[in-house]
Design a protein around this nucleic acid. Sequence first.
DNA 1: TGTACATCAGTGAACGCGCGTTCACTGATGTAC
DNA 2: TGTACATCAGTGAACGCGCGTTCACTGATGTAC
Lengths: 207, 207
Amino acid sequence: VSTAEVPFPPRRRNPRGQGRQLSVDILQAGRQIIEQTGDETRVSLSEIARRVGISAPSIYDHFTGIDDICGQVVAGAWTEYARTVAATAEVGASLHAQVLAFARAYVRFAREHWGLYRVLYARTAPSPMPDTGDAARADFARLVTGVAGILGVEPVSEEAWDAAVGLWIQLHGIASLPPVHPRFDWPDDERLIDAALRRSGLHAPAG
Amino acid sequence: VSTAEVPFPPRRRNPRGQGRQLSVDILQAGRQIIEQTGDETRVSLSEIARRVGISAPSIYDHFTGIDDICGQVVAGAWTEYARTVAATAEVGASLHAQVLAFARAYVRFAREHWGLYRVLYARTAPSPMPDTGDAARADFARLVTGVAGILGVEPVSEEAWDAAVGLWIQLHGIASLPPVHPRFDWPDDERLIDAALRRSGLHAPAG
DNA sequence: TGTACATCAGTGAACGCGCGTTCACTGATGTAC
DNA sequence: TGTACATCAGTGAACGCGCGTTCACTGATGTAC
Protein backbone atom coordinates (compact mmCIF):
# COMPACT_ATOMS: atom_id res chain seq x y z
CA VAL A 1 0.00 0.00 0.00
CA SER A 2 2.34 2.68 1.22
CA THR A 3 5.38 0.80 -0.02
CA ALA A 4 5.43 2.99 -3.11
CA GLU A 5 6.12 6.18 -1.21
CA VAL A 6 9.28 5.45 0.72
CA PRO A 7 9.63 7.84 3.64
CA PHE A 8 13.23 6.89 4.32
CA PRO A 9 15.94 9.15 2.91
CA PRO A 10 18.30 7.94 0.18
CA ARG A 11 21.73 6.91 1.22
CA ARG A 12 25.29 7.49 0.08
CA ARG A 13 27.46 4.42 0.09
CA ASN A 14 30.03 4.46 2.85
CA PRO A 15 33.54 5.55 1.88
CA ARG A 16 36.17 2.90 1.51
CA GLY A 17 37.26 1.51 4.87
CA GLN A 18 34.06 2.71 6.59
CA GLY A 19 32.07 -0.41 5.71
CA ARG A 20 31.50 -1.27 9.33
CA GLN A 21 29.41 1.85 9.71
CA LEU A 22 26.61 -0.02 7.98
CA SER A 23 26.36 -2.55 10.81
CA VAL A 24 25.75 0.33 13.20
CA ASP A 25 23.00 1.67 10.94
CA ILE A 26 21.43 -1.79 10.73
CA LEU A 27 21.31 -2.19 14.50
CA GLN A 28 19.89 1.30 14.80
CA ALA A 29 17.12 0.46 12.35
CA GLY A 30 16.37 -2.76 14.24
CA ARG A 31 16.16 -0.83 17.46
CA GLN A 32 13.87 1.72 15.80
CA ILE A 33 11.49 -1.05 14.76
CA ILE A 34 11.41 -2.47 18.29
CA GLU A 35 10.84 1.00 19.71
CA GLN A 36 7.87 1.53 17.42
CA THR A 37 6.31 -1.91 17.53
CA GLY A 38 7.28 -3.15 20.98
CA ASP A 39 7.68 -6.57 19.43
CA GLU A 40 10.99 -8.15 18.54
CA THR A 41 9.35 -10.53 16.06
CA ARG A 42 8.51 -7.51 13.88
CA VAL A 43 12.17 -6.95 13.15
CA SER A 44 12.65 -8.16 9.58
CA LEU A 45 15.58 -7.95 7.21
CA SER A 46 13.43 -6.35 4.54
CA GLU A 47 12.13 -3.66 6.85
CA ILE A 48 15.63 -2.92 8.12
CA ALA A 49 16.95 -2.72 4.56
CA ARG A 50 14.15 -0.33 3.66
CA ARG A 51 14.86 1.94 6.60
CA VAL A 52 18.61 1.96 6.12
CA GLY A 53 18.28 2.44 2.38
CA ILE A 54 20.16 -0.65 1.23
CA SER A 55 19.24 -3.95 -0.36
CA ALA A 56 18.48 -6.84 1.96
CA PRO A 57 21.40 -9.09 0.95
CA SER A 58 23.88 -6.43 2.06
CA ILE A 59 22.99 -7.24 5.62
CA TYR A 60 24.67 -10.63 5.36
CA ASP A 61 28.06 -8.98 5.09
CA HIS A 62 27.63 -7.85 8.68
CA PHE A 63 25.31 -10.31 10.41
CA THR A 64 24.65 -14.02 10.15
CA GLY A 65 20.90 -13.50 9.97
CA ILE A 66 17.85 -12.03 11.56
CA ASP A 67 18.39 -13.71 14.95
CA ASP A 68 21.86 -12.25 15.13
CA ILE A 69 20.52 -8.73 14.67
CA CYS A 70 17.63 -9.23 17.05
CA GLY A 71 19.90 -10.60 19.74
CA GLN A 72 22.28 -7.68 19.47
CA VAL A 73 19.46 -5.14 19.50
CA VAL A 74 17.94 -6.67 22.63
CA ALA A 75 21.34 -6.87 24.29
CA GLY A 76 21.79 -3.21 23.45
CA ALA A 77 18.41 -2.46 24.96
CA TRP A 78 19.47 -4.08 28.24
CA THR A 79 22.67 -2.08 28.16
CA GLU A 80 20.78 1.15 27.65
CA TYR A 81 18.33 0.21 30.38
CA ALA A 82 21.20 -0.47 32.76
CA ARG A 83 22.91 2.75 31.82
CA THR A 84 19.79 4.87 32.17
CA VAL A 85 18.31 3.36 35.30
CA ALA A 86 21.40 2.37 37.27
CA ALA A 87 22.97 5.72 36.52
CA THR A 88 20.52 7.33 38.92
CA ALA A 89 22.58 6.26 41.94
CA GLU A 90 23.88 9.54 43.28
CA VAL A 91 26.73 9.17 45.66
CA GLY A 92 25.97 10.76 48.98
CA ALA A 93 22.23 10.97 48.47
CA SER A 94 19.94 9.64 51.16
CA LEU A 95 18.45 6.17 50.79
CA HIS A 96 15.00 7.70 50.37
CA ALA A 97 16.31 9.85 47.56
CA GLN A 98 18.08 6.94 45.92
CA VAL A 99 15.01 4.72 45.90
CA LEU A 100 12.89 7.61 44.64
CA ALA A 101 15.40 8.30 41.89
CA PHE A 102 15.40 4.65 40.92
CA ALA A 103 11.61 4.54 40.76
CA ARG A 104 11.49 7.67 38.63
CA ALA A 105 14.20 6.44 36.30
CA TYR A 106 12.49 3.07 35.91
CA VAL A 107 9.13 4.54 34.96
CA ARG A 108 10.73 7.21 32.84
CA PHE A 109 12.66 4.60 30.86
CA ALA A 110 9.40 2.78 30.20
CA ARG A 111 7.72 5.99 29.06
CA GLU A 112 10.52 7.21 26.81
CA HIS A 113 11.33 3.79 25.42
CA TRP A 114 7.97 2.08 25.41
CA GLY A 115 8.97 -0.50 22.82
CA LEU A 116 12.24 -1.36 24.48
CA TYR A 117 10.61 -1.68 27.89
CA ARG A 118 8.01 -3.97 26.42
CA VAL A 119 10.61 -6.21 24.86
CA LEU A 120 12.65 -6.28 28.06
CA TYR A 121 9.83 -6.58 30.58
CA ALA A 122 6.72 -7.78 28.84
CA ARG A 123 7.90 -10.06 26.11
CA THR A 124 5.99 -13.08 24.91
CA ALA A 125 8.61 -15.78 24.87
CA PRO A 126 11.22 -15.73 27.61
CA SER A 127 12.98 -18.78 26.21
CA PRO A 128 15.13 -17.54 23.32
CA MET A 129 16.99 -15.01 25.45
CA PRO A 130 18.47 -16.99 28.30
CA ASP A 131 20.91 -14.99 30.34
CA THR A 132 20.20 -11.39 29.62
CA GLY A 133 18.35 -9.52 32.28
CA ASP A 134 21.46 -9.27 34.42
CA ALA A 135 20.66 -5.60 34.56
CA ALA A 136 17.29 -6.43 36.10
CA ARG A 137 18.91 -8.68 38.68
CA ALA A 138 21.50 -6.06 39.55
CA ASP A 139 18.76 -3.46 39.91
CA PHE A 140 16.81 -5.71 42.20
CA ALA A 141 19.82 -6.35 44.43
CA ARG A 142 20.38 -2.62 44.75
CA LEU A 143 16.71 -2.16 45.46
CA VAL A 144 16.72 -4.70 48.29
CA THR A 145 19.68 -2.97 49.90
CA GLY A 146 18.13 0.46 49.65
CA VAL A 147 14.77 -0.71 50.89
CA ALA A 148 16.35 -2.55 53.80
CA GLY A 149 18.19 0.58 54.84
CA ILE A 150 15.03 2.68 54.79
CA LEU A 151 12.95 0.13 56.66
CA GLY A 152 15.74 -0.44 59.17
CA VAL A 153 15.97 -4.17 58.61
CA GLU A 154 18.73 -6.50 57.46
CA PRO A 155 19.28 -6.62 53.66
CA VAL A 156 18.91 -10.40 53.72
CA SER A 157 15.68 -10.26 55.72
CA GLU A 158 12.33 -11.38 54.44
CA GLU A 159 10.89 -7.93 55.07
CA ALA A 160 13.41 -6.26 52.83
CA TRP A 161 12.91 -8.80 50.09
CA ASP A 162 9.12 -8.61 50.22
CA ALA A 163 9.18 -4.82 50.17
CA ALA A 164 11.50 -4.78 47.17
CA VAL A 165 9.31 -7.28 45.32
CA GLY A 166 6.28 -5.17 46.16
CA LEU A 167 7.89 -2.03 44.83
CA TRP A 168 9.08 -3.76 41.67
CA ILE A 169 5.58 -5.06 41.00
CA GLN A 170 4.11 -1.62 41.53
CA LEU A 171 6.64 0.06 39.28
CA HIS A 172 6.00 -2.48 36.56
CA GLY A 173 2.27 -1.88 36.96
CA ILE A 174 2.78 1.88 36.68
CA ALA A 175 5.05 1.40 33.69
CA SER A 176 2.84 -0.97 31.75
CA LEU A 177 -0.83 -0.54 32.63
CA PRO A 178 -1.54 3.08 31.63
CA PRO A 179 -0.28 2.71 28.04
CA VAL A 180 -2.75 -0.13 27.48
CA HIS A 181 -5.72 1.93 28.71
CA PRO A 182 -4.91 5.34 27.27
CA ARG A 183 -8.48 6.57 27.52
CA PHE A 184 -8.56 6.12 31.27
CA ASP A 185 -7.93 9.26 33.27
CA TRP A 186 -4.64 8.30 34.90
CA PRO A 187 -2.88 10.39 37.53
CA ASP A 188 0.49 11.62 36.33
CA ASP A 189 3.55 9.45 36.86
CA GLU A 190 4.95 11.45 39.74
CA ARG A 191 1.77 10.94 41.69
CA LEU A 192 1.63 7.23 40.89
CA ILE A 193 5.21 6.77 42.01
CA ASP A 194 4.61 8.80 45.15
CA ALA A 195 1.62 6.64 46.04
CA ALA A 196 3.56 3.43 45.41
CA LEU A 197 6.42 4.48 47.68
CA ARG A 198 3.97 5.63 50.32
CA ARG A 199 2.15 2.29 50.26
CA SER A 200 5.45 0.46 50.62
CA GLY A 201 6.55 2.60 53.55
CA LEU A 202 9.44 3.98 51.53
CA HIS A 203 8.30 7.55 51.24
CA ALA A 204 10.61 10.32 52.40
CA PRO A 205 9.52 11.84 55.70
CA ALA A 206 7.99 15.29 55.33
CA GLY A 207 10.15 18.33 55.92
CA VAL B 1 9.93 -28.38 9.53
CA SER B 2 7.29 -29.95 11.75
CA THR B 3 4.59 -29.29 9.22
CA ALA B 4 4.85 -32.86 7.98
CA GLU B 5 3.75 -34.43 11.24
CA VAL B 6 0.37 -32.90 11.93
CA PRO B 7 -0.52 -33.17 15.61
CA PHE B 8 -4.15 -32.24 15.08
CA PRO B 9 -6.73 -35.01 14.80
CA PRO B 10 -8.58 -35.69 11.55
CA ARG B 11 -12.08 -34.43 11.29
CA ARG B 12 -15.45 -35.74 10.19
CA ARG B 13 -17.48 -33.33 8.12
CA ASN B 14 -20.45 -31.90 9.97
CA PRO B 15 -23.82 -33.53 9.30
CA ARG B 16 -26.25 -31.71 7.09
CA GLY B 17 -27.76 -28.70 8.84
CA GLN B 18 -24.95 -28.53 11.38
CA GLY B 19 -22.69 -26.39 9.20
CA ARG B 20 -22.64 -23.58 11.70
CA GLN B 21 -20.78 -25.82 14.11
CA LEU B 22 -17.66 -25.13 12.08
CA SER B 23 -17.74 -21.45 12.96
CA VAL B 24 -17.63 -22.42 16.63
CA ASP B 25 -14.64 -24.66 15.99
CA ILE B 26 -12.90 -21.86 14.09
CA LEU B 27 -13.35 -19.40 16.93
CA GLN B 28 -12.14 -22.02 19.38
CA ALA B 29 -8.99 -22.56 17.35
CA GLY B 30 -8.41 -18.82 17.17
CA ARG B 31 -8.80 -18.58 20.89
CA GLN B 32 -6.39 -21.49 21.35
CA ILE B 33 -3.76 -19.69 19.30
CA ILE B 34 -4.17 -16.53 21.37
CA GLU B 35 -4.00 -18.55 24.59
CA GLN B 36 -0.73 -20.12 23.49
CA THR B 37 0.96 -17.14 21.87
CA GLY B 38 -0.48 -14.22 23.81
CA ASP B 39 -0.47 -12.32 20.54
CA GLU B 40 -3.53 -11.67 18.41
CA THR B 41 -1.41 -11.05 15.34
CA ARG B 42 -0.37 -14.72 15.40
CA VAL B 43 -3.91 -15.76 14.56
CA SER B 44 -3.75 -16.82 10.91
CA LEU B 45 -6.28 -18.49 8.65
CA SER B 46 -3.81 -21.21 7.73
CA GLU B 47 -3.02 -22.05 11.32
CA ILE B 48 -6.70 -22.13 12.24
CA ALA B 49 -7.47 -24.37 9.27
CA ARG B 50 -4.66 -26.70 10.33
CA ARG B 51 -5.94 -26.93 13.88
CA VAL B 52 -9.57 -27.41 12.92
CA GLY B 53 -8.67 -29.91 10.21
CA ILE B 54 -10.22 -28.11 7.24
CA SER B 55 -8.93 -26.25 4.22
CA ALA B 56 -8.38 -22.54 4.59
CA PRO B 57 -11.02 -21.40 2.05
CA SER B 58 -13.77 -23.09 4.08
CA ILE B 59 -13.37 -20.34 6.64
CA TYR B 60 -14.84 -17.79 4.24
CA ASP B 61 -18.22 -19.46 4.45
CA HIS B 62 -18.41 -18.32 8.07
CA PHE B 63 -16.27 -15.23 8.42
CA THR B 64 -15.41 -12.30 6.19
CA GLY B 65 -11.71 -12.62 6.92
CA ILE B 66 -9.01 -12.79 9.52
CA ASP B 67 -9.99 -9.53 11.21
CA ASP B 68 -13.51 -10.80 11.66
CA ILE B 69 -12.29 -13.88 13.49
CA CYS B 70 -9.80 -11.97 15.58
CA GLY B 71 -12.39 -9.44 16.63
CA GLN B 72 -14.83 -12.11 17.69
CA VAL B 73 -12.17 -14.04 19.60
CA VAL B 74 -11.09 -10.93 21.49
CA ALA B 75 -14.70 -10.00 22.19
CA GLY B 76 -15.20 -13.51 23.52
CA ALA B 77 -12.14 -13.11 25.70
CA TRP B 78 -13.60 -9.97 27.25
CA THR B 79 -16.85 -11.83 27.84
CA GLU B 80 -15.08 -14.67 29.55
CA TYR B 81 -13.04 -12.22 31.59
CA ALA B 82 -16.20 -10.47 32.69
CA ARG B 83 -17.91 -13.76 33.50
CA THR B 84 -14.98 -15.14 35.47
CA VAL B 85 -13.94 -12.05 37.36
CA ALA B 86 -17.24 -10.28 37.92
CA ALA B 87 -18.85 -13.54 38.98
CA THR B 88 -16.87 -13.38 42.20
CA ALA B 89 -19.31 -10.91 43.72
CA GLU B 90 -20.97 -12.93 46.45
CA VAL B 91 -24.11 -11.38 47.73
CA GLY B 92 -23.99 -10.81 51.44
CA ALA B 93 -20.21 -11.09 51.71
CA SER B 94 -18.31 -8.36 53.50
CA LEU B 95 -16.62 -5.66 51.47
CA HIS B 96 -13.23 -6.96 52.53
CA ALA B 97 -14.17 -10.41 51.27
CA GLN B 98 -15.52 -9.00 48.03
CA VAL B 99 -12.40 -7.03 47.24
CA LEU B 100 -10.24 -10.02 48.17
CA ALA B 101 -12.33 -12.27 45.95
CA PHE B 102 -12.00 -9.81 43.09
CA ALA B 103 -8.24 -9.62 43.50
CA ARG B 104 -7.93 -13.40 43.56
CA ALA B 105 -10.18 -13.83 40.53
CA TYR B 106 -8.28 -11.20 38.60
CA VAL B 107 -4.88 -12.78 39.18
CA ARG B 108 -6.27 -16.25 38.71
CA PHE B 109 -7.73 -15.31 35.34
CA ALA B 110 -4.33 -14.02 34.29
CA ARG B 111 -2.65 -17.24 35.44
CA GLU B 112 -5.13 -19.65 33.87
CA HIS B 113 -5.52 -17.64 30.68
CA TRP B 114 -2.13 -16.08 30.23
CA GLY B 115 -2.57 -15.47 26.52
CA LEU B 116 -6.03 -13.97 26.87
CA TYR B 117 -4.94 -11.70 29.70
CA ARG B 118 -2.02 -10.54 27.62
CA VAL B 119 -4.24 -9.70 24.70
CA LEU B 120 -6.76 -7.91 26.93
CA TYR B 121 -4.34 -6.10 29.23
CA ALA B 122 -0.93 -5.97 27.63
CA ARG B 123 -1.54 -5.70 23.94
CA THR B 124 0.66 -3.78 21.57
CA ALA B 125 -1.80 -1.70 19.63
CA PRO B 126 -4.80 -0.33 21.50
CA SER B 127 -6.20 1.34 18.40
CA PRO B 128 -7.93 -1.38 16.37
CA MET B 129 -10.25 -2.40 19.21
CA PRO B 130 -12.08 0.75 20.17
CA ASP B 131 -14.88 0.13 22.58
CA THR B 132 -14.21 -3.21 24.15
CA GLY B 133 -12.89 -3.16 27.64
CA ASP B 134 -16.31 -2.30 29.02
CA ALA B 135 -15.71 -5.21 31.35
CA ALA B 136 -12.58 -3.50 32.63
CA ARG B 137 -14.48 -0.27 33.20
CA ALA B 138 -17.30 -2.06 34.99
CA ASP B 139 -14.78 -3.86 37.17
CA PHE B 140 -13.11 -0.62 38.07
CA ALA B 141 -16.38 1.02 39.05
CA ARG B 142 -17.17 -1.91 41.33
CA LEU B 143 -13.66 -1.71 42.73
CA VAL B 144 -14.00 1.98 43.59
CA THR B 145 -17.25 1.32 45.41
CA GLY B 146 -15.85 -1.58 47.39
CA VAL B 147 -12.67 0.25 48.25
CA ALA B 148 -14.60 3.33 49.33
CA GLY B 149 -16.72 1.22 51.66
CA ILE B 150 -13.69 -0.36 53.29
CA LEU B 151 -11.78 2.88 53.67
CA GLY B 152 -14.91 4.63 54.95
CA VAL B 153 -14.87 7.38 52.36
CA GLU B 154 -17.28 8.55 49.69
CA PRO B 155 -17.25 6.49 46.47
CA VAL B 156 -16.71 9.66 44.45
CA SER B 157 -13.84 10.81 46.65
CA GLU B 158 -10.28 11.18 45.49
CA GLU B 159 -9.12 8.74 48.16
CA ALA B 160 -11.36 5.98 46.90
CA TRP B 161 -10.32 6.57 43.33
CA ASP B 162 -6.60 6.66 44.13
CA ALA B 163 -6.85 3.50 46.20
CA ALA B 164 -8.67 1.67 43.43
CA VAL B 165 -6.11 2.79 40.87
CA GLY B 166 -3.34 1.68 43.21
CA LEU B 167 -4.88 -1.75 43.64
CA TRP B 168 -5.47 -2.16 39.92
CA ILE B 169 -1.85 -1.29 39.20
CA GLN B 170 -0.65 -3.75 41.79
CA LEU B 171 -2.89 -6.53 40.52
CA HIS B 172 -1.70 -5.94 36.98
CA GLY B 173 1.88 -6.03 38.22
CA ILE B 174 1.24 -9.31 40.03
CA ALA B 175 -0.50 -10.71 36.98
CA SER B 176 2.09 -9.74 34.42
CA LEU B 177 5.56 -9.42 35.93
CA PRO B 178 6.24 -12.94 37.28
CA PRO B 179 5.55 -14.73 33.97
CA VAL B 180 8.22 -12.59 32.29
CA HIS B 181 10.86 -13.45 34.90
CA PRO B 182 10.12 -17.12 35.54
CA ARG B 183 13.55 -17.81 37.00
CA PHE B 184 13.06 -15.32 39.79
CA ASP B 185 11.98 -16.80 43.10
CA TRP B 186 8.54 -15.25 43.36
CA PRO B 187 6.29 -15.57 46.41
CA ASP B 188 3.08 -17.42 45.61
CA ASP B 189 0.09 -15.49 44.35
CA GLU B 190 -1.83 -15.58 47.61
CA ARG B 191 1.03 -13.90 49.37
CA LEU B 192 1.47 -11.29 46.65
CA ILE B 193 -2.23 -10.46 46.75
CA ASP B 194 -2.22 -10.33 50.52
CA ALA B 195 0.70 -7.90 50.49
CA ALA B 196 -0.96 -5.71 47.87
CA LEU B 197 -4.19 -5.43 49.86
CA ARG B 198 -2.23 -4.77 53.04
CA ARG B 199 -0.25 -1.98 51.38
CA SER B 200 -3.47 -0.41 50.12
CA GLY B 201 -5.12 -0.58 53.54
CA LEU B 202 -7.74 -2.99 52.24
CA HIS B 203 -6.73 -6.04 54.19
CA ALA B 204 -9.33 -7.78 56.35
CA PRO B 205 -8.83 -7.11 60.06
CA ALA B 206 -7.45 -10.11 61.92
CA GLY B 207 -9.85 -12.36 63.76
C1' DT C 1 -39.77 -48.00 -4.00
C1' DG C 2 -37.01 -45.53 -7.40
C1' DT C 3 -35.06 -41.57 -9.47
C1' DA C 4 -34.03 -36.73 -10.53
C1' DC C 5 -32.79 -32.77 -8.34
C1' DA C 6 -31.43 -29.19 -4.86
C1' DT C 7 -28.78 -28.16 -1.17
C1' DC C 8 -25.16 -28.36 1.94
C1' DA C 9 -20.31 -28.73 3.69
C1' DG C 10 -16.81 -28.36 2.27
C1' DT C 11 -11.87 -28.95 -1.47
C1' DG C 12 -8.02 -28.03 -4.85
C1' DA C 13 -5.69 -25.14 -7.66
C1' DA C 14 -4.20 -20.83 -8.38
C1' DC C 15 -2.97 -15.78 -7.64
C1' DG C 16 0.02 -12.12 -5.63
C1' DC C 17 2.47 -10.68 -1.61
C1' DG C 18 6.38 -10.19 1.72
C1' DC C 19 9.68 -12.74 3.86
C1' DG C 20 14.72 -14.94 4.56
C1' DT C 21 18.43 -16.45 2.04
C1' DT C 22 21.80 -17.74 -1.96
C1' DC C 23 24.54 -16.49 -5.67
C1' DA C 24 26.95 -14.30 -9.25
C1' DC C 25 27.84 -9.68 -10.31
C1' DT C 26 29.14 -4.46 -10.54
C1' DG C 27 31.10 -0.21 -10.07
C1' DA C 28 33.82 2.87 -7.41
C1' DT C 29 38.25 3.55 -5.05
C1' DG C 30 42.73 2.83 -3.63
C1' DT C 31 47.57 0.70 -4.63
C1' DA C 32 51.71 -1.46 -7.03
C1' DC C 33 54.71 -0.80 -10.56
C1' DT D 1 52.14 10.27 -14.91
C1' DG D 2 49.77 6.18 -16.62
C1' DT D 3 47.91 1.71 -16.26
C1' DA D 4 46.79 -2.85 -14.43
C1' DC D 5 45.05 -4.84 -10.59
C1' DA D 6 42.99 -5.81 -5.94
C1' DT D 7 39.75 -4.64 -2.77
C1' DC D 8 35.73 -2.83 -0.96
C1' DA D 9 30.70 -1.75 -0.49
C1' DG D 10 27.43 -3.04 -1.95
C1' DT D 11 23.17 -4.83 -6.01
C1' DG D 12 19.80 -7.72 -8.87
C1' DA D 13 17.79 -11.80 -9.86
C1' DA D 14 16.22 -15.81 -8.22
C1' DC D 15 14.70 -19.62 -4.92
C1' DG D 16 11.24 -21.63 -1.67
C1' DC D 17 8.12 -20.63 2.01
C1' DG D 18 3.73 -19.33 4.38
C1' DC D 19 0.29 -16.18 4.13
C1' DG D 20 -4.68 -14.21 2.65
C1' DT D 21 -7.89 -14.61 -0.80
C1' DT D 22 -10.56 -15.98 -5.30
C1' DC D 23 -12.77 -19.25 -7.99
C1' DA D 24 -14.71 -23.21 -9.99
C1' DC D 25 -15.60 -27.64 -8.36
C1' DT D 26 -17.10 -32.15 -5.74
C1' DG D 27 -19.27 -35.46 -3.21
C1' DA D 28 -22.51 -36.63 0.32
C1' DT D 29 -27.28 -36.08 1.92
C1' DG D 30 -31.88 -34.93 2.04
C1' DT D 31 -36.45 -34.06 -0.70
C1' DA D 32 -40.12 -33.91 -4.44
C1' DC D 33 -42.57 -36.66 -7.35
